[in-house]
Simulated scan of single mutants.
Amino acid sequence: MTENVLKRKLSLRLKRKKRIRAKISGSADCPRVSIFKSNRTIYAQAIEDVNSTTLCTSDGKVLGIKSNKDGAVVLAKDLAAKLKEKGIEKVVFDRNGYIYHGVVASFADALKENGIKL
């Protein structure tokens, strides 16, 4: 029974992801910031969808953080510094099908606090 529940949760997240991606896109001056979270770590990247290139990434595994709210704040601070190095002040936030709550909300709030407009 638990296998079916996990498959259903994943399929619902993928549906939300497709619905979100149909509406947003990143450009060179306003890239898309996508977040991925697993049970152990968090990853984020800034993507330019016009040329399908990744501008910068931030990896929770490399930073040695856990997948919690405090880790999301550290990850956002790191990504904001990398974005500012490239001269990017405004981004489009892609929550990647996750509900805007907890870790995802903490990441977005920390990006705002570090001077990146969403």
Rank of each mutant, 00 (worst) to 15 (best):
L14V: 09
D94W: 03
V92D: 06
G87Y: 06
E89D: 15
L79G: 06
L75G: 05
Y43N: 10
R21E: 12
I116Y: 02
K18H: 11
K23R: 15
L79T: 04
S38D: 05
N68Q: 10
Y98H: 13
S58N: 06
A22L: 13
L10F: 12
A72L: 07
G115K: 06
S106C: 08
A80W: 02
I88F: 04
T54I: 15
N114Y: 05
M1I: 07
I99Y: 13
E3A: 15
D78S: 14
R13C: 07
A46R: 09
G71W: 04
T57I: 14
K117W: 00
E85H: 02
V104P: 02
P31F: 01
D59P: 04
A105M: 13
I116R: 05
A80K: 01
E48Q: 08
A76Q: 07
G87R: 03
L111H: 07
L75M: 06
L79P: 03
K23Y: 01
S34I: 09
E113L: 12
I116D: 05
I35R: 04
N39E: 15
K84Q: 14
N114H: 15
E113A: 15
A72H: 07
S25K: 13
I24S: 13
F107G: 09
K15G: 03
Q45D: 03
S34F: 00
S27N: 13
S38M: 08
A81N: 13
L118I: 13
A76D: 10
D49Q: 11
G64F: 08
E3Y: 14
I116F: 07
V5D: 14
S38W: 05
I35M: 05
T54F: 08
R95E: 05
A76F: 01
A110V: 05
L111F: 04
D70F: 00
K117H: 11
A110W: 00
K84C: 07
R13F: 06
S106F: 07
L111S: 05
N39H: 12
R16D: 07
S52Y: 05
R19F: 12
K117Q: 14
T53Q: 14
E89M: 12
C56Y: 03
G115P: 02
A72Y: 09
K82P: 02
K82H: 04
H101R: 13
G102P: 01
I116G: 07
F93W: 02
K86Y: 01
Y43V: 10
L55C: 06
K77W: 00
S67T: 01
L55E: 11
A44R: 04
N51W: 04
E85K: 15
N114V: 02
V92G: 03
